[in-house]
Design a protein around this nucleic acid. Structure first.
Lengths: 219, 219
DNA sequence: GCATCATTCAATAATTATGTTGAATGAACT
DNA sequence: AGTTCATTCAACATAATTATTGAATGATGC
């Protein structure tokens, strides 16, 4: 159909946005960018993908309005257009969690200790932090931690957690968080901590959701 | 990459859902299904597309978990999996409205009287309806009206509006609504009513949003 | 100016999505 | 049993997406 009415034209534009979200690599880029702005090179390193490939995906997302870019010296930094992009990602995740048998299978297979983990909600954690009853650890890599983290959180990247167990104060409970609701690292951190006798839980969401909820972030 | 970690596998599933939303025809089907369950034939007639084509799109959406189907006699009725699908659609629409220059262009070109139209919010309309100060007209086709509409609304399909102007009581104001926020029919209805001297406005959302907000629907 | 280096472009090949056509399926009814 | 008819399947052609490679761009700093 060559002649389109305005409604069809609008729907095509909505489809452009959805299409831009319809690729696992781009979703991973969004998760990374939700931590903070990044250069193409940094993103390529994180995802372990060729730079040209990442650049193309970023440009596709820019065309769709999901991200913006800004040159800084010889680097081009990309960032999420705004929080509505993360909201769209979240709503797609909800649909998948509710209706995809495959998601359920993956979660069962790899996150089977999930029910044991009794995730802590943002609100609950904020309350417990105020009482000083909890040690909060951020298991993301240091560069992501540096761009913002929960107030008072200590940065213990997952790879170093085992060696640094003695650093953790013997508060009643340890809460681990990372990039977002399905970020694997906090699951593994909690499992490891429990193996060593700590009382540990996950925060339900990651830093981006915490920030979007208007809660305080330390830089 | 043939070996995938659970995170990548999850992201692939999220991408499946987003991809299923990444097609204008499927989005139109979702808008239709948001009005109520429909058979393949009915949907094909609404969209003026071949039945086999619509069937394939519906099956793609079913695989992605967006819709469910149920046989009723010789018809197969499809319906949205749940309200999270409409929420995902809405969040994608928000991203497009905020960041797509093309969407802005379309809206300017075809909906340029939009600012004049001072849309009525659901809450405001609900209040005015209670006071009996407003005539509510549903400009959708009769079959969609029959599946549910605002309490007290009268069904005046857009094509019949001009002939039925005399039916409209001289209440202080007429409010028109249709399928959703970007449904063209309510815009055109308001423009036509104003040309004939009526004081008319649009409701901001459509019936599906009204229903999802928990407000009363008449069958 | 010239070299460096992050990013983008261009060209290719492989895969996947899309629309069309006509035939197959399968439930309902005679 | 056979007919009808809504839906689905199968096969094909076309278009779009994706990853990969190497070259081009363009800003920086010597």
């Amino acid at each position: 159909m060559s002649i389109r009415n305005p409604k069809q034209a609008l729907y095509e534009q909505f489809a452009v946005v959805a299409k831009a979200l319809g690729n696992p690599q781009r979703l991973e880029l969004i998760e990374q960018l939700a931590q903070g702005p990044r250069s193409v090179e940094a993103l390529a390193a994180k995802l372990a993908h060729p730079v040209a490939n990442v650049s193309q995906h970023l440009q596709a997302m820019r065309r769709a309005g999901l991200v913006t870019s800004e040159r800084d010296g010889k680097f081009v930094n990309y960032r999420l257009a705004d929080e509505s992009v993360l909201a769209a990602f979240a709503s797609i995740r909800v649909v998948a969690e509710r209706h995809s048998a495959e998601v359920e299978r993956i979660v069962r297979g790899y996150f089977d200790r999930r029910d044991d983990m009794e995730p802590v909600s943002r609100e609950e954690l904020a309350a417990r932090m105020k009482d000083g009853l909890v040690t909060v650890i951020d298991v993301r890599p240091p560069d992501e931690f540096a761009l913002g983290h929960l107030p008072g959180a200590i940065n213990v990247p997952l790879g170093q957690l085992e060696q640094r167990l003695s650093d953790l104060k013997a508060k009643p409970e340890i809460v681990a968080y990372c990039r977002g609701p399905w970020c694997v690292m906090s699951f593994e951190a909690v499992a490891l901590l429990r193996e060593h006798g700590f009382r540990a839980r996950r925060m339900e969401d990651g830093l981006p959701e915490w920030r979007d909820a208007g809660l305080a972030v330390e830089a």
